[in-house]
Nucleic acid binder design. Structure first.
Length: 324
DNA sequence: AAGACGAAAGTGGTTGA
DNA sequence: TCAACAACTTTCGTCTT
């Protein structure tokens, strides 16, 4: 494009940043060509035909930030409400308020009031226009509700909304329940962000059963090509210690136990919750802040038997290693 | 008596033919 | 699609503190 700049990135910058400020039709004083280009990088106006610099020391009246596409431009523009993916129109719609007053605070005339009333009605209708929009609006409100119920942080809510939007644009919703996919997206978001929430917990916070959520979850990660590593037991330990209100020391020891367990290859193939529960149990007995197996089992959502089995394996192996 | 332990049978999910 | 399989659960009797 521009001869002065050969790199592709700079070509893009010039093409996107010059377009919002159209140049008044100018002619090159050398060759008379109208192919005049502004180059803000060098603060010059250049003739594209013969390469002569028409004007120098140009002022860039554009924004100081760079944007390479529409989305970035929308994000960086510092006007309007912040973008959010949790509302179906990304929170950018303007509302006509319900006060029947003009900008000076004066009451509107009856004719104007009727007109505003009609405008409001149409705005409501247009805001959620087609089936896809309605689907999105319903699902996103559902996602907000559930993630509020689970006390999930805001970034999970945003991530889940983005995942759901992706599912909609890839036409993955057809043939399965909106709620199922919505709950599944929350679960995917939790897993992606490394938040220790079990499928059970997420499903229980919604009205969808676990099986359905699991199915939708597997479907989502398959179709959207997500790679989600299995949750590490250590992430559960932190959670359990918090819920059991144990000392920081206990948590620390539990993590150490877990590390040795991993080295001894005792973790593979086992449920991460069971191992984490067993490690927490051992740590609590070692410290002397004894918790019963039942207490831990309840919080970890596993049975006492599982804790016992993991615990036994761990102790046996550790004793064996010590004797060597 | 509460909690820990372990055996036996049952359950739901994964894997490979 | 189905059987085999490992992990896990449920249940229950026994032991320990």
């Amino acid at each position: 494009m521009l001869i002065l700049h050969s790199s592709k990135e700079e070509d893009e910058r010039i093409s996107t940043e010059t377009s919002p400020h159209p140049v008044k039709v100018q002619h090159c004083p050398e060759c008379g060509s109208t192919r005049i280009m502004r180059d803000y990088e060098c603060a010059e106006i250049v003739c594209m035909n013969c390469g002569v610099v028409v004007a120098a020391n140009l002022t860039d009246r554009g924004p100081e930030w760079r944007a390479f596409d529409d989305e970035q431009r929308a994000k960086r523009s510092r006007v309007g409400a912040p973008l959010t993916f949790t509302i179906h129109d990304k929170g950018l719609s303007t509302m006509i308020d319900w006060h029947d007053r003009d900008t000076y605070g004066k009451r509107l005339s009856p004719g104007q009031r009727a007109q505003i009333y009609r405008l409001r009605k149409w705005q409501r209708r247009i805001r959620v226009s087609d089936a896809t929009e309605r689907n999105l609006a319903f699902a996103l409100s559902e996602i907000s509700k559930i993630s509020n119920g689970l006390n999930l942080p805001k970034n999970i809510l945003e991530t889940a909304s983005v995942i759901y939007r992706k599912a909609v644009t890839e036409h993955l919703i057809r043939g399965r329940s909106i709620q199922g996919v919505a709950v599944a997206s929350i679960y995917v978001a939790c897993r992606q962000c490394g938040l220790a929430r079990t499928l059970d917990e997420v499903a229980q916070a919604s009205s969808v059963n676990k099986k359905e959520v699991g199915r939708s979850y597997r479907f989502l990660i398959k179709e959207l090509n997500y790679f989600i590593p299995p949750l590490k037991p250590s992430q559960y330990i932190t959670k359990f210690s918090n819920q059991l209100t144990m000392q920081g020391k206990v948590e620390e020891i539990a993590h150490k136990i877990l590390e040795t367990a991993k080295e001894l290859k005792l973790t593979s193939g086992r449920g991460p919750t069971g191992i984490a529960a067993a490690a927490s149990y051992i740590a609590s007995t070692l410290i002397g802040e004894r918790k019963t197996q039942r207490e831990i089992a309840e919080i970890a959502q596993v049975t006492e038997v599982t804790i016992r089995n993991r615990y036994k394996e761990l102790v046996d192996r550790l004793m064996f290693e010590m004797s060597l």
